[in-house]
Simulated scan of single mutants.
Amino acid sequence: MCGIACGINCEIKTNEKLLKFLKRRGPNFFSCLKIKVENIFLEFGSSVLWQQGDNLCSQPVRQGNFLILFNGDIFNIPDKQSAESDTEWLAKKISGCTNETDVCHLIQSLQGPFSLIIFHIYSRSLYICRDYLGRNSLIIEKEAELFRFSSTSCNYNSRKCALELPPLGLYVFDPIFPTVWKLFPWKQTTDALSIEIKTLNNIFGLTISVEEHMKPDWLKVQLGLRVVVVGSGADELFGGYTRHRNAFCRFEGNEDEKLMNLHRELEKDWNRIWARNLGRDDRVVADNGKTLRAPFIEEKLAQYVRSLSPSQLCCFLLKEGIGDKLFLRLFGFQLGLKDVSKLKKRAIQFGSKIANKKLNATDRSVYL
């Protein structure tokens, strides 16, 4: 896992706090590149956690007319050489792009968790993107006329705006005019797209025009051994939260109406999982120099589970510890996990007793 950052009239190398956080994500290498574009300065910085290739791939990568910052893994590289890292492979592919359409086609072909920043030097096009599910962190910050995009953040005071960049698709803009953006969105519901665009407009004063949709290619995932495996997405997909039980049991209506209300609650949780969990989890794991894997939200599995009816995933006519996430419990029981499959859900911070009761759970932690 790496740390990437891009500042528009915004220093990176001299920001000691940010530098410290970035280097913790990538302890093997760090580099910054500063360039002038007319009356502004762009600074690109990256720290690298070396996990792929025979040799460490330093970033930012200069390939043809492009500068590239990449944090993530690509699972569906058809012709990858074992000595080559994902970043090197991607940089070669990007160098062959001649316009925005080419970049869109390349981005939508990628499968796996990633966040990336690409700058085309001659056209002055800055491309920003997170994968379809928003699994790898990328934060947008603004103070006055200064903009920064970064894997992590050290800004929590009221004078600065900091927000998880919504994984809506591929953002493109000219850094000379940093508030006028184009968005090539991932295929998603119009309502969800409109809400997130409105949030960006209100907080950062952006004008975002929506272009043609991108449709991510769902190719076979080839998983290799990784360091940390987490269960993110299980509750959102299979109905594991108390609010899911309440959405069914407390709703006044017949069973079909109760299931429809439950479906709406599940959809709401799924559509905001990137904001509530994924970016945070990525920062926590990467801050320890590790790579995170979340098998429940791999594209193929998530797509299949979301095609099922809520009645196939959970049953709140059964008691707590049985009806919630019933699909997973039955599967676990079938595998021989008979005792575990009947345990009540318990959040890890309480089960492990690491939760600090003096902290308010609704407050934003400075550690995330």
Rank of each mutant, 00 (worst) to 15 (best):
D287I: 02
L292A: 00
R276D: 10
V61S: 04
E252I: 15
T362Q: 15
E257Y: 06
G134T: 00
N155E: 13
L223N: 15
P60S: 11
L22F: 09
E196F: 09
W218D: 09
V37F: 07
I68S: 12
Q188L: 12
L56E: 05
P78C: 07
D287N: 13
A355S: 00
V221P: 02
K338W: 05
G351Y: 11
R24H: 07
C104M: 11
F119W: 08
Y171K: 07
R250N: 15
V221R: 04
E211H: 04
G323N: 03
C161K: 14
Q59H: 13
E164C: 04
R283K: 12
Q59F: 01
H120M: 08
I117D: 02
K300Y: 12
I128E: 00
D86S: 09
C129K: 03
L328N: 09
Q63L: 05
K325I: 13
K142C: 12
D174R: 02
G240D: 04
F316I: 00
K345P: 03
E265S: 15
S150E: 06
E43R: 07
R283N: 11
F29R: 04
Q108S: 09
D363Q: 13
C154Q: 09
T362F: 11
K34Y: 07
K220T: 15
L193V: 07
A286M: 13
L278V: 09
I348Q: 02
R245P: 03
K13E: 14
I273S: 15
I12C: 01
E84L: 06
R306T: 08
C2Q: 04
L22E: 04
G96P: 02
R264I: 10
G231A: 06
